[in-house]
Computed example of a mutant assay.
Amino acid sequence: MKRSGPVVTLLAGLLLGLFMLSMNSTTGTKSASTAYAEESPEAATASPTPTRTTASSSPSPSRTPVPDADYAGRTTDDSASVAVTLRDGKAIAYFCDGRAKESWLKGDVEDDGTMKLTGKHGAELNGTLKEGKRISGTVDIDGGQYAFTADKAKKPSGLYRATATVRGAKVDGGWIVLPDGRQVGILTRDGESSPAPRIDPETGAVTIDGQQLTARPVTP
């Protein structure tokens, strides 16, 4: 009986060890995925889709048309006069040598002050408004090119025209009143051109073949 004591003690220890192993197998640590799910709730919840923002397009810059004004001047060779009237981004011009050569031209004015005006028989004016003070450019007419500069004009300087039927003839007159008071114009009667008589710059009154007409400022 005394020898069986250690054996019994050894068996008791083995049984205790087996019991502890059995307990660990049923109540052991949780799996890594389960623990991560419990410790990190966001792992089990789908991440929200990020909101896409669309940059608003920048507003287009507002257009600033060239100011309304009248311009009058001479060609570089001093052989003719040129007048240009600007209104609401449109332009009308008159080239006149005061004897027989003339042309009416019209077209648009770009926001940067450039313009390309056209008239009959291929006439063309290319000009640029500089600082709102003057227009410089060229006029192509009848195979010739004329450089010009037209300064800003104040009334009564500017561009005038009168059309009527006088004694059965169709009359068309154009006048440029320069800033120094000089007048250059052509009067056409049934297609025949001649120097135009002077107009009253204050009223536009002019007498043609005994009949009084009124030359009025020209606008596009």
Rank of each mutant, 00 (worst) to 15 (best):
T9W: 07
L18H: 02
L18W: 06
F19M: 12
M20H: 13
S22D: 03
K30A: 11
S33F: 04
T34Y: 05
A35P: 02
E38Y: 12
E39V: 15
S40G: 06
T49Y: 02
P50S: 03
P50F: 07
T51R: 10
A55Y: 05
A55F: 08
S58K: 07
S60L: 10
P61A: 14
S62V: 08
S62L: 08
T64H: 09
P65N: 08
V66F: 03
D70S: 14
A72N: 04
T75C: 07
T76R: 15
D77A: 09
D78P: 01
A80D: 05
A80N: 01
S81D: 11
S81K: 11
T85R: 12
T85N: 13
L86H: 02
L86I: 13
D88E: 12
D88N: 14
G89L: 10
I92K: 15
Y94H: 11
F95L: 14
F95D: 12
D97E: 05
R99W: 08
A100S: 15
K101W: 08
K101D: 13
E102D: 10
E102K: 09
S103K: 05
L105F: 07
D112C: 10
G113N: 04
M115C: 08
K116I: 15
T118P: 00
T118C: 00
H121M: 09
H121F: 11
G122W: 05
A123Q: 06
A123T: 05
E124I: 12
L125K: 02
N126G: 14
T128G: 01
K130V: 13
E131M: 07
G132D: 01
S136K: 09
G137R: 15
G137M: 11
T138Y: 09
D140N: 09
G144M: 10
G144K: 10
A147H: 01
A147F: 04
A147R: 07
A150M: 05
K154T: 08
P156L: 09
P156D: 02
S157I: 03
G158V: 02
G158N: 04
L159H: 10
Y160I: 03
T163P: 00
T163Y: 07
T163E: 11
R167Q: 15
A169P: 00
D172G: 01
G174N: 04
W175C: 01
G181K: 03
Q183D: 01
I186W: 02
G191C: 05
G191H: 01
S194F: 02
P197V: 02
I199M: 10
E202I: 09
E202T: 11
T203E: 00
G204R: 14
V206C: 09
L213R: 04
A215Q: 11
P217H: 14
V218N: 09
